[in-house]
Design a protein around this nucleic acid. Structure first.
Lengths: 130, 130
DNA sequence: ACAATAGTTCGATGGCTGTCAAACAATGAA
DNA sequence: TTCATTGTTTGACAGCCATCGAACTATTGT
């Protein structure tokens, strides 16, 4: 469970990790916000569209952790890298988990706000769910 | 989210904490095993019956974190302290979460098995005694 | 009263990890 | 080619936190 050194896997096509690894990946506020944002939009999200208050290197680190837990997939498109939540695989491994994360009211610790598009999609998802 | 210093609350009668705090509380392998064990038995569990490979002070620390997240309740009975999972409250706040934790197959990092640890220690004790 | 049991609290500590800046790699545009 | 954009990697660092031992409190039993 070392997120600093190469955490197990770089290929995201494998299975979702064990529950302990998944929980640890979700335990960070920034990563939780990223996952919630990914779950809110069906379209893959570009890396730089995450409006989290961290540098790109830190963001890359968080992506690696999420990838290592088998929670996301990334596909290069030009210089960009589109990220998608592996919703089907996660739901198959841990039914209802993503749903719980999305539905949970979340107070952001450090104005961990996302951009307006993401917020709108979250609102849309909430409207659909509600 | 500081688990070292006094983490918010000592009274466990309040609501379950926000999802970020809950996830961080569950992210530790020892605490996850404790919660899974608590979820497995309807009866409250005595503190010393957790066969996790940590000292009692560390165990006390983990109980405080779980209490701070609103996941457990503790009630003194003589010198003992019985611990119960706040299953109803957790289910109300995050439906299906405990179910996910219980159902998830868990590989233990350091033979962190509860019932098996008991069996193994008994076997070891028997082997030593016999 | 005395000892034993059950937990808590307090310091200290080592390892983990989230964070950043800088350097690097890859791709697309001028 | 040259520059701009995007993201990764590396090294360093600070803070958090799981862990322990020791001292302490509280309750029960002898």
């Amino acid at each position: 469970m070392n997120t600093q050194e190469f955490a197990g896997r770089s290929d995201p096509s494998g299975p979702v990790a064990d529950i302990a690894t998944v929980l640890q990946a979700l335990a960070d506020p920034v990563r939780l916000a990223m996952v919630r944002s990914l779950a809110g939009s069906v379209e893959p999200i570009c890396c730089s569209s995450f409006q989290v208050p961290v540098t790109k290197s830190t963001l890359s680190h968080h992506f690696r952790v999420l990838r290592g837990a088998g929670l996301i997939e990334q596909r290069a498109e030009g210089t960009r890298k589109l990220t998608t939540l592996r919703r089907a695989e996660i739901d198959a491994a841990y039914p209802g988990l993503v749903e719980t994360l999305v539905r949970a009211p979340l107070e952001l610790p450090e104005s961990l706000e996302l951009d307006e598009a993401v917020r709108e999609s979250e609102l849309a998802a909430g409207a659909l769910a509600g």
